[in-house]
Amino acid sequence: MTELWEGLVTAVKLIISLDPEVMEIAGRSLAISATSSTIAALICLPLGAVIHSNKFPGKRTLINIVQTLFSLPTVAVGLFVFVLFSRAGPIGGLDIMFTPVAMVIGQVILISPIMLGLTISALSGVDKAIADTAISLGASGLQTAVITLREARFAVLAGLIMGFGRAISEVGLSLMVGGNIAGFTRTITTAISLETSKGDLELALALGIILIVIALVINLVLNRVQQR
C-alpha cells in the first residue's frame, strides 16, 4: 500500500513538474493517435457516406463484417502490419518498421472499422427525408452527403472520438510494430508496459494517470456531444 502511495505521490510530482520524459511520451502518444484518427476519419467519413447512400448487394453483410471488426484484437493487427511491412515482407522496402509511421498505419487499420461502423449507423439515424429534401433543393450527391453528415454531426463525432480513444489506449500493436524505442516510438501505453516490467512504478503511474485523464476528457466530451 505504501508503495502505491509513494508511487502516486512521485507520479503526481512528475506530472506537475512537467517532467520532460513524461511530457515527451504523452505528447508522442497524442500525436500518433491524433494522426491515425485524422487519417481514419478522412477515410471513414466519405466511405461511410458512400456506403450509406448506395444500394448494392451484400451491403448488410458488409456492415455486419465492419461491426464485427470493432473488436479487432490489437495484436492481430500488429501481426498483420508486421508481416506486411517487415523488410522480408511483401512491402518491406518502405523501411517503416519500428517507426511511428508503422504505428499510425496499424492504428488506422485498428480504428477504421469503429469509425466506419459508427459513421454508417449515425447516418442511418438521420431522417431519410433530409436527403430527399436536399436533393429536391438541388444538392449534388456530394452536397447531399455533406448535409446528411452535418445533420448526424454529434453521432459522427462520437464515433470519431471512440476511435481516437481506442487508438491512444491500445498497447499490443504499438509494441509490436513500434518497438517501444525510447525517444522515437515509445508511447504512454508501451512505456507503462515496459516501466512496470522493469519495476519503475513511478513513471508508469504518472503515465497511467495521464492516460486516465485523457480517457476522462474523452468521455466528458463524448457525453456532452451525445446530450446534444
Binding site: A129, I130, T133, S136, L137, R150, E151
Partner: peptide, 22 residues
C-alpha cells in the same frame, strides 16, 4: 425545380441557413 415534401423536415440550423441551403 423545388419540392415541398408532405411532411417537411428542416435542417438542424437557423431558419436563415435552411432557406439559404438551396
Amino acid at each position: 425545380m423545388s419540392f415541398v415534401l408532405q411532411k417537411p423536415v428542416v435542417f438542424n440550423m437557423s431558419v436563415y441557413n435552411n432557406v439559404a441551403c438551396g
